[in-house]
Design a protein around this nucleic acid. Structure first.
Lengths: 158, 158
DNA sequence: AAAAGTTACGTTTTACGTAAAGATT
DNA sequence: AATCTTTACGTAAAACGTAACTTTT
């Protein structure tokens, strides 16, 4: 089962109307009809009860809708997390310090700002390895300002 | 992002080897390479660090792998639940009774058998509506044996 | 007649495999 | 030389849109 099909199914299920769902997905009704038929082939039975002038969910369709929504949400999340990672919005922040006087006015202010703008930074998942992202070391180069974190728009958007 | 791409990515991430992943997915290496490149285009950056003779995950790849596995598992579950529903393995069991003597030796045995073979029957999700599945009423037709539940192979397999 | 979903069919897009190339051990 | 990934390119499958068809109001 591909996400395209789950998206097609969910749109029809939520609109309870092929025409509106097709408009929402920006495809024609015939394309949408084919996708839904693909879903029903995979499922092995109907997910919609096409009564005249009305599209209702079958029992299998009700169950599928719940799971389809979860799956689609999780897929969006997967892409979002990965995108944030490449744009530097998700990851560990490693730093060191040499002189307290040097840092307390700059570093703490930026960390505060970071936590304000990224309240859910500490999320489940493995610890980032940072094999690619070089870490600036304040101890080794005390005069180097630590890199600004977050705030960048992520590229590659639709 | 389509599931095909997440499957390709996850296979390479788990095998840490394009050749083995391609064999697992039963496609050629070139097709797999193209899918992974598609993932990286969508993500906006590399998910693998192709060092010579070794494929390692980048930070974004590590995060994506966690979410990809969840998404793929959920998609499988969605299809499975819907398939079980059309084959009658998931749903509510409605019944009635007329004479205890008639039922206690047959109905209870079948219910016991059903619960043995479907221990996780009571799962989250909306209550099945059964607008399509007709319910046999023992009270109305006492002599009708209640329908056997479960045990059927589901059609539509790959 | 109007609206909704499906089918038929030609076109475009996507995915795939074979073969060759580039890179690394 | 041998292994592994990528690129080039022709082919097959999938998705799409236009238009015609069926059914229902």
């Amino acid at each position: 089962m591909e996400l395209r099909r789950l998206r097609s199914f969910a749109a029809v299920a939520e609109e309870r109307h092929f025409g509106r769902a097709a408009a929402r997905l920006q495809v024609t009704r015939s394309a949408l009809s084919a996708q839904v038929q693909g879903v029903e082939r995979e499922v092995g039975g109907p997910v919609f009860a096409r009564t005249s002038r009305r599209v209702e969910l079958t029992c299998a369709g009700e169950l599928l809708l719940v799971e389809a929504r979860r799956t689609l949400a999780l897929a969006d999340r997967a892409l979002s997390v990965a995108r944030q990672s490449v744009s530097g919005e998700v990851g560990a922040v490693r730093t060191g310090f040499l002189g307290v006087a040097l840092l307390e006015d700059v570093l703490t202010a930026d960390l505060r700002s970071f936590h304000r703008s990224h309240p859910r930074h500490g999320r489940p998942g493995p610890a980032p390895s940072f094999q690619d992202a070089p870490v600036e070391r304040h101890a080794a180069r005390p005069r180097t300002r630590h890199r600004r974190v977050g705030g960048g728009d992520r590229p590659g958007g639709p």
